[in-house]
């Protein structure tokens, strides 16, 4: 990989300052970024490690009953400590990558990258979570803007994500057999004011909400309510591991399974 300076700030303020360097890049757990750097597909001047900032670590409940997770919190921590508060989210985190990846990979890193096959975007979008940065709060519906594209500005750092805790939720991941990312992942979350369904892995446009399913499930929260519903295959990803038609089919199957498991 190309060489770079390594910065390890201990406060958000210092991190923001370090990120103001030209071509500085934030480093979460690095589980996607480091392989990318190895291929010389990125050439940051400075890598700003965010894992040494105590205020970006850990999970807690806020007064509004939201589960708040620091941006630099690892998947393993969410899996272990989130279970008591938001079991479906913790279960999702416990199946990202593999154990070693979960010990390093972070929530903020996953969201900032917004890989179209990553699991977290589905959870954040289905939960209607709020992405908190050093500068502002961004609603999940505004945050995801297509494959590898987000609402983050240059140098902006995800410090925390606030998840409203649903009445019931479940995430169904159908793994791509090589990468073990989601070939299709569906996160269903049932709130008092309606059901949200977010799909990852499937669409050319990255994570998306399946609004027809949400409507059907909001009036009848049962797998049967999804009968006859399907997503448009023409917008689905087609690759070695699945045709667009197959992914569209899996979206239906995984959504039904998620509802049944709620």
């Amino acid at each position: 990989m190309y060489n770079f300076d390594f910065a390890k700030p201990s406060t958000i303020a210092d991190a923001v300052k370090a990120m103001s360097e030209e071509d500085a890049q934030a480093l979460g757990g690095g589980q996607t970024l480091i392989p990318t750097l190895k291929q010389r597909l990125a050439a940051p001047s400075t890598l700003v490690s965010l894992t040494g900032i105590p205020e970006m670590q850990g999970i807690c409940m806020d007064d509004a009953g939201r589960l708040c997770i620091g941006g630099a919190t690892t998947h393993a921590t969410v899996a272990a400590e989130g279970a008591a508060h938001y079991p479906a989210l913790a279960a999702m985190a416990s199946h990202i990558g593999d154990p070693a990846v979960r010990n390093r990979g972070t929530l903020g890193g996953s969201l900032a990258n917004n890989d179209p096959s990553a699991c977290y975007p589905a959870a954040v979008l289905a939960s209607g979570a709020t992405v908190v940065t050093n500068a502002r709060e961004i609603a999940a519906d505004d945050y995801f803007q297509g494959m590898f594209t987000t609402a983050l500005d240059e140098g902006e750092i995800i410090t925390e994500v606030k998840f409203p805790v649903p009445e019931a939720a479940n995430y169904q991941k159908f793994v791509q057999p090589a990468s073990r990312f989601a070939l299709v992942g569906v996160f269903v979350a049932k709130y008092a004011d309606g059901v949200r369904v977010a799909v990852t892995g499937a669409s050319e446009d990255g994570v998306f909400r399946w609004s027809e399913a949400e409507e059907a499930l909001s009036s009848d929260f049962s797998a049967g309510a999804l009968d006859g519903l399907s997503v448009d295959a023409s917008t689905m990803i087609g690759d070695l591991h699945g045709t667009p038609e197959y992914r569209a089919h899996l979206v239906s199957v995984m959504t039904r399974r998620a509802v049944a498991a709620c």
């Binding site: 690095g30 490690s49 070693a100 010990n103």
Partner: peptide
């Protein structure tokens, strides 16, 4: 447990 090839 971490992957030493994916950590600086």
């Amino acid at each position: 447990a971490v992957k030493a090839c994916t950590m600086f």
